[in-house]
Simulated assay, not measured.
Amino acid sequence: MEPRSRLELANDNAAGQWLALAGVEGWETRSGTGWAAVRCGDGTGNAHQVQLTRAPADAAELTGQLVALFREWDTRWLSLVDPYGAVDLSRFGCERTLPTPVMVRDPGPVPSRPGGRRAAAGGAVGPTAVEEVAVAAVVVGPEAGGAAVVGAVEVVEAATEGELADVERVVVEGFPVAPRLPWRRGATFPAGWDVLAGRRSWLARLRGEPVGACVSWDDGASVGVYWVAVLPEHRSRGIARELMAAVLRAHPDRPAVLSATLLGEPLYRRLGFVEQGVATWWRYPGTGMGAPGPTAAP
């Protein structure tokens, strides 16, 4: 068997997470050569998910397979991730969103945090004047037995119902996930997801208040980092960095993989992540389109 490239490692992690979630929910799945699809249940607020995992030998043939599946599933809401720029779904009513770098970090020590900068006179915080706060990453897991908090910010692995609820709320409000506002417990992260083996939830608190969160998925070969979010009023304080550092320290022997947002990419590069490809995200329906009819699937 050919060794997987770093990009393939990241693709497989993303696909594997959705397939695992489908197993918890009882959702139908379908896989082909170089792709995996999940038919998220109606009423869950989740689009049907498709992840391309390998570069197709014949893009036209792959497009035909996927379109046939969408019609079979009566797909009315779709999210498809193509890290190879292989398919063009625009003629089927899909919209291409902003491309996102797919990044991978090899195992290794987490770079030390650069010194903070004090806020400008009057307390203004801007691109060159970030409020200085004491930050410490504290990982609390089954093997840790708890840990004392040092400094103003702590990062814990969410374990209690209250902590898991805080993770979900911060992700919805901090990302933000507009269709899920106002936040409602279990609407974004159902209870079954929270206890899925390989999935871990991380919560950052500032002076005891939840301010940041993310989720990680360990598939045995890599650890994927998803939903890195900080509440708007607490950004530019190094909180996202401490979340990432906690995940990396909890998985010292695993490559880490993620898809970077425009705002997050500089941080990930500083932490040692390297771009392996650029993913095109296709969604259906496109912005401004009306609700599709029963035969309008792409």
Rank of each mutant, 00 (worst) to 15 (best):
L19H: 01
L19S: 04
L19G: 03
L19W: 02
A20N: 10
A20K: 08
A20P: 07
L21E: 10
A22F: 02
G23C: 04
G23A: 06
G23H: 04
G23S: 01
V24E: 07
E25V: 10
G26V: 07
G26P: 07
G26Q: 08
G26A: 06
W27H: 14
W27S: 14
W27T: 10
E28N: 11
E28L: 12
T29C: 07
T29M: 00
R30G: 04
R30N: 09
S31Q: 13
S31K: 13
S31D: 10
S31I: 08
G32V: 08
T33A: 14
T33S: 12
G34W: 03
G34K: 01
G34C: 07
W35H: 10
A36R: 12
A37M: 13
V38E: 03
V38Y: 03
R39W: 12
R39T: 07
C40K: 13
G41Y: 10
D42Q: 15
D42N: 13
G43I: 12
G45R: 06
G45A: 03
N46V: 09
N46G: 09
A47K: 04
H48T: 15
H48K: 10
V50T: 08
V50Y: 01
Q51C: 11
Q51G: 08
L52A: 08
L52S: 01
L52C: 04
L52M: 11
T53K: 03
R54T: 10
A55S: 12
A55P: 08
P56T: 01
P56G: 11
P56R: 04
P56D: 10
P56L: 06
P56Q: 07
A57E: 15
A57C: 07
D58H: 11
A59T: 09
A59Y: 04
A60M: 10
A60K: 14
E61H: 12
E61T: 15
E61A: 15
E61K: 14
L62I: 11
G64Q: 15
Q65L: 11
Q65T: 11
Q65R: 12
L66N: 06
V67N: 08
V67D: 06
V67P: 07
L69Y: 08
L69I: 09
F70S: 06
F70P: 11
R71G: 11
R71I: 02
R71D: 06
E72N: 00
E72P: 05
W73R: 05
W73N: 06
D74E: 12
T75K: 01
T75N: 02
T75E: 00
R76A: 03
R76Y: 03
W77L: 12
W77K: 14
L78Q: 04
L78Y: 00
S79L: 10
S79E: 02
S79H: 05
S79F: 00
L80Q: 03
L80D: 03
V81M: 05
V81T: 12
V81Y: 09
P83I: 02
P83N: 05
Y84L: 01
Y84R: 02
